[in-house]
Design a binder for these strands. Structure first.
Lengths: 225, 225
DNA sequence: TTGCTCCGGATTGTTGACAATCAGTGCAGC
DNA sequence: GCTGCACTGATTGTCAACAATCCGGAGCAA
């Protein structure tokens, strides 16, 4: 749904490789910590090593891989300290996005926000087990708020980097999170704060929402490996 | 001072080229909006186009250049809307960094913070005209707080990306900013909040500090082209 | 057994040549 | 005079070969 349209002719081979690599990493097709062999990937993608290396450099900028000279690139390890860092950054950025969205969103966008919430609620009631679609609903909500901020740098940071890492994380722990009900309720409160153009409250609620999500995930990770 | 040590043998040609390009862009040696010719730069750096292209891909990740396929890369244009975006993101991230630093900084680091402030004050009293060194003092302060957050992702985002853009901006407007006195005073307040381990206040003050800086810069940009 | 050295294989880094694409120019045709 | 087209020149994208570097194990000495 929120996957960028990857036409067969999207642009250059580097960009195509970059998309495919991102997809492979986020979905777990390439496991965390796994080494990225240039020769192997190049032949698998049917391209040369040149464009592939450029794609890896780009993924490094997105923090999806870590690269050490003369030793190659590996898929990033989303261990607990890193996730803690990620959620703090996310709290700061999405808080700000929410504040700005409360001021900048058009009425139409706000309406769309509530449509999303209703759709999400239906999805929860209908298929209570399919955590995957619930996650996607969650992402759609945050995605729309990011766009509503009208701050291109913020959008790039969130959509282009942080959300990829979060999706990557979800593929590991999606079956664990059972917080959909309270999360939806918090989303409603946030949307209402935005509808009332209350930036202070919107930021506060979003930060509390994310900070709470981290507490929950962190707790789950204590008991599960 | 805060320049990363770039030994002649720092590692690969791409990394060296990346450093040199960053330097050239930040100092204005490469003007904003200027086109980056691969062939030209490659010969100027005495390397091939391969590593140079990788360096450009990396700079693109740092938001220092914008690249459009089949048309080449250009130095980013720091126009007013973009700077507005940048300062909002900075407000969010440095606010969070300050909050975390108030909790995580060692007593020794906090002492260093005050040493920096005193040194900065002396510099202001001594050479009232040299805005450049004052800017560097300003950066040192923010830099230390970022490091104090102990959040690697936050550090990377601030030091690796935002601060480069800010320095790039300073080279254009350094001679305009006359806000050093009140800024120093605000720094003192922030440092004291950190010393008292008051994360809430530290974040609030830092956000106010940055937001105020933007108001000032924005105002100056109204009258000056 | 432990530790060191050295070597071979594999992987990454670099290069120059080749192909594809785009911007500008001049000419023919209407 | 204007429009459209093909051509040209330059720039970017891609490739395959070459060079540099690192990792792991064999061999040997203490």
């Amino acid at each position: 749904m929120s996957a960028q349209l990857d036409l067969d002719e999207e642009r250059t081979l580097s960009d195509k490789a970059s998309s495919r690599l991102t997809q492979a990493i986020v979905t777990g097709e390439l496991a965390q910590g796994q080494k990225l062999s240039e020769a192997d990937l190049a032949t698998r993608f049917g391209i040369s090593r040149g464009p592939l290396r450029e794609a890896i450099r780009q993924l490094e900028g997105m923090r999806l891989v870590t690269r050490v000279p003369h030793a190659g690139a590996r898929v990033v390890m989303l261990d607990k300290p890193m996730l803690a860092d990620l959620y703090r950054v996310r709290e700061a950025l999405e808080g700000m996005a929410c504040r700005m969205a409360a001021q900048a969103m058009s009425q139409e966008e706000i309406d769309t926000l509530f449509v999303l919430l209703n759709r999400h609620e239906e999805a929860i009631n209908a298929a209570d087990g399919l955590a995957y679609f619930q996650s996607e609903g969650d992402f759609d909500f945050h995605f729309h708020i990011a766009l509503g901020s009208r701050n291109q740098m913020l959008i790039d940071l969130l959509v282009g980097e942080l959300y990829q890492l979060l999706r990557m994380c979800r593929y590991r722990t999606s079956h664990l999170a059972k917080r959909t009900r309270p999360a939806l309720q918090q989303h409603r409160q946030i949307a209402e704060a935005i509808a009332e153009r209350d930036g202070d409250l919107a930021e506060l609620l979003m930060r509390r929402h994310i900070s709470g999500a981290w507490k929950s995930i962190s707790q789950i990770m204590e008991t599960n490996p």
